[in-house]
């Protein structure tokens, strides 16, 4: 078993996922079973999207931050492994961002009555999503591997510097905005925060697993290209 650590990690993540699911959905699957989390009084059961929506958003931010650090790493050291990590992190971040901007409207529609209420956080996520899609697009444009890594590292840094400006601009754009959680949104029941923290931790672990696997794949692809290139050379000689 050469992939043993990954398998163990997958096992742990699965168990944690099931635990979180049971805590959140116990009563929606088995009617007599009461779930660990209480039902929110004003939003009803749909509020439970929260347990996966917010951890996804935080994981996406983490992913983009890691990509930012990896981009700086590439610029300073010029080792392709940093670029592999940056690519992996951006790709996973985009996946989580996609989850956020799809589950967001599914939550907003029953609670606020509109699919897209231009909530600052949701809008920030949308702009982030666009930014990093462009990053992935840039990757497909360059043919020279080294140049691709260099350009993407530059964009990885620029895009992340844009994140706080985007966030505050979107926030101040309307003056007031709907607050659901956080300061001014009232507290959160202790059991809710247990389930939430459990979900968050599980998502971070999942991110770590995906990052390692995706970066390894990118690394292997580089290795493969190198092998192919050297093959070509010996074939010509």
């Amino acid at each position: 078993m050469k992939n043993f650590p990954a398998l163990v990690l997958i096992g742990i993540i699965s168990v944690m996922m099931i635990a979180v699911l049971a805590a959140v959905f116990g009563d929606t699957v088995v009617f007599s079973f009461s779930s660990y989390v209480p039902t929110e009084s004003s939003m009803g059961i749909v509020q439970r999207i929260f347990y996966f929506h917010v951890p996804s958003a935080l994981t996406a931010f983490l992913a983009f931050f890691v990509a930012f650090v990896a981009s700086i790493g590439y610029i300073t050291t010029r080792r392709l492994i940093w670029d592999n990590v940056a690519l992996a992190s951006v790709e996973i971040g985009v996946i989580f961002c996609t989850i956020v901007i799809i589950t967001g409207p599914l939550w907003a529609r029953p609670v606020w009555g509109s699919w897209w209420p231009w909530d600052p956080r949701l809008t920030t996520t949308l702009i982030l999503w666009l930014l990093y899609i462009v990053y992935l697009l840039l990757r497909t444009y360059s043919e020279n591997r080294e140049q691709q890594a260099r350009f993407c590292a530059v964009l990885g840094i620029i895009a992340f510097l844009d994140v706080p400006i985007v966030y505050f601009s979107v926030r101040w754009w309307r003056g007031v905005h709907p607050m659901v959680f956080g300061s001014g949104g009232g507290g959160i029941a202790p059991r809710m925060s247990h389930a939430f923290l459990g979900a968050l931790f599980t998502f971070f672990l999942l991110y770590g697993l995906l990052l390692v696997q995706r970066a390894r794949l990118a690394y292997m692809e580089d290795e493969f290209e190198e092998l192919l290139a050297s093959e070509h050379e010996t074939g010509q000689a």
Partner: peptide, 22 residues
């Protein structure tokens, strides 16, 4: 409480489909 269960269902489907697919 069961009101809007459909939204909840689709939201979680999205999460699983995307993560598993990836």
């Amino acid at each position: 409480k069961w009101h809007n269960l459909g939204y909840l269902f689709w939201a979680y489907m999205v999460v699983w489909v995307f993560l598993a697919g990836y």
